[in-house]
Design a protein around this nucleic acid. Structure first.
Lengths: 215, 215, 215, 215
DNA sequence: AATGAATGAGATTTCATTCAT
DNA sequence: AATGAATGAAATCTCATTCAT
């Protein structure tokens, strides 16, 4: 009688966990749906109704957890922020031992790995005047972390230059996302190759120490 | 030739002459307003009412010239298309005599010059499924013209590679627009410098013929 | 040709003016409907949809003129404010020549005459914390005007006392409205009589100068 | 009788004993919260969620005790009804020995003492068509008891007149509540004084037997 | 019983588009 | 042709109430 609640093994077996610990799971589902719809339609065109439908909830439940469209966007942004921090922590941990090329590639793929399917992160990063500054923050964090990573890898790099570079690199990273969801697969792969090439060239030109006896 | 319409009384002529070329002038004003609002708010958030207000027109008149929001966007896109063609015609005319660096810079500035104030062109270039393919066309034209210019400048460049490069270069051009409207002026100028640098490096690395005696 | 617009007499003849000068007329209709519904249901329970339906408009038209429920309420309040001022102007004009009893009755009927059918004015006058201070203002104006009228009638009345009295008198005026819409007609008339009596007694006790030789 | 449920171990009893009288206590807490919120926001704007939160209960528990918002209001009304009866029982018990002035003051303070902090009782007394007639009943009871008290005090008073007076007196009582929660303390005390004065004058004018020799 | 998530009807509000004058 | 009011579908959001755990 009191064992039907202690059968945690049973619950853990079927990997879907239908209703227990619902709050966290539900939020996760809602965020996922929000990410999907925003990726596909953009923030403005994404409707709360569709997000609710996509996550098999009713509109009221969506609003219970996120009291508005903006709140949902903010939650997504917060998550991206955290994930960006985690991703850069990982990069930074091995930055000193990375070749410039590897560093270039790692950076390029960072945003891509955050939400591999969609482009909600880039969509939400486009700060527009009048929007909550959460969006601006997301951008700022990304820029700051990029600059920081550059200086960890190449301590001699001047801080202002690192900051300037971060703008360019962030754009390359966003471009990467765009390419990754291009419909024309052939084109995409070629474009990706060129993007990688440009990104490497750029980083190398600044970060590679002048070889002794090269000129 | 320019007097064939002024055949009434003086008073009436004065009263109406300003209205003669009104159609064209009006369209111009409306497009300008549309460009502004779309630049600021994005296509979705731009409202026909605001576009009308911004151009000191009433909503009805706006609809007389453009039978819908999409039509207005399409007209803008058409104009960008034409301007892109004109701009590339100009570049192509002197492409063969341009240094790689100059070519790189010219490309970078092309989108910027199309509508120097706003970012409507980039906003409208973001094709989304379900939209009129005018938007996709705008992108396509830009990509095609970029590739073509590259091959005019460097005829030995393989067509497929030129196409792949065009994706990257178009993104740099769009980035250019974004930087140009950054609020932080100091940052913007540094970021602009880096973008120029990267863009040059990239083009040079592919277009510059191997110097005799370099290796 | 140019006389079809100068036929103002024609337009003025049929006293309904179907579509001309529509703005003002429509606003009037909407305010009337708003007044009705708010009178019946109270501000919270009144729905914009019902107000629209009651005025034979669609919801969009309602919002064209009043961009929100609060805006509609504010417009009503403004109108009451003006009408209160007008009503008190009229009272004040003859205040000096009025007997205390007449003054008492005039005051009592003032709110009633503002919108004879409904009680929207009293409903909207109930200032609640967190509401727009328009409501508070309406109350303030009424209180101020009452006090002012008292002092016009009886200049010897001290200002602070007049202010204190205005609170009581305003409540009597609101009570008057409540009684006027009581369903039980018999009761209402008796209650009205008593209210008049109390109101007169109160004013007399303060405003009537002690008769010489009375005690 | 009260031990039939406490037949477990001591520990368990202690753990549960606080829950014994919980029903009554809980209802009390919920009603208090309901009273507060309705006082502040009015019936329509008061939300069950806020009432639950204010009483540190979850929404489900609130619904266990009161199966709906109306039921909660009705419970409050019932309580006011009972309290009104108790209050008038007390007044009636000494009515014959009260001076008219004391009676006037006692009446005025009656509603005030029912729920000294809030105005839920007045709020709920405002009967609106379509509502449960519990609200109407509350009003009726108050009116009836007022009339009854008047006749206990002054048996010669005609029943119909007593009824008519009760409307006016009830309004004075409600006004009393309104004044008591006025923010402007100075004003409030002056207004209260005037209200008392008017109320006394009114009752005296009717209830005071004509003094012999007053002519 | 206690908890708080789920439900969905209904309210507010927006805006592209049409239409009457 | 110019004006701006009219229309209504659709979006955002609220909240009383039910239900699963």
């Amino acid at each position: 009688m009191d064992s039907n609640k202690a059968s945690s093994t049973v619950r853990e077996r079927n990997a879907r966990t239908p209703k227990r610990t619902n709050g966290i799971r539900r939020v996760e589902v809602l965020l996922k749906a929000g990410e999907e719809v925003i990726s596909e339609k953009g923030y403005e065109s994404a409707t709360m109704a569709e997000i609710a439908a996509r996550s098999d909830t009713c509109i009221g439940s969506l609003y219970r957890f996120f009291p508005g469209k903006e709140a949902l966007a903010n939650a997504l942004i917060d998550r991206y922020r955290e994930n960006i921090d985690l991703a850069f922590d990982a990069i930074d941990a091995e930055a000193v031992s990375l070749s410039v090329q590897s560093l270039a590639d790692r950076l390029l793929e960072t945003l891509l790995l955050l939400n591999p399917k969609g482009s909600a992160s880039s969509r939400l990063m486009e700060a527009r005047p009048g929007w909550s500054n959460k969006r601006e923050e997301l951008r700022s964090v990304a820029l700051r972390r990029i600059a920081q990573t550059l200086r960890i890898h190449s301590p001699q790099l001047e801080e202002p230059l690192a900051r300037d570079m971060s703008y360019v690199l962030l754009h390359n990273m966003k471009t990467m996302k765009t390419f990754a969801i291009l419909s024309d697969r052939e084109r995409a792969s070629g474009a990706l190759r060129e993007l990688h090439r440009m990104n490497r060239l750029y980083l190398e030109s600044i970060l590679t120490p002048p070889q002794p006896g090269e000129n």
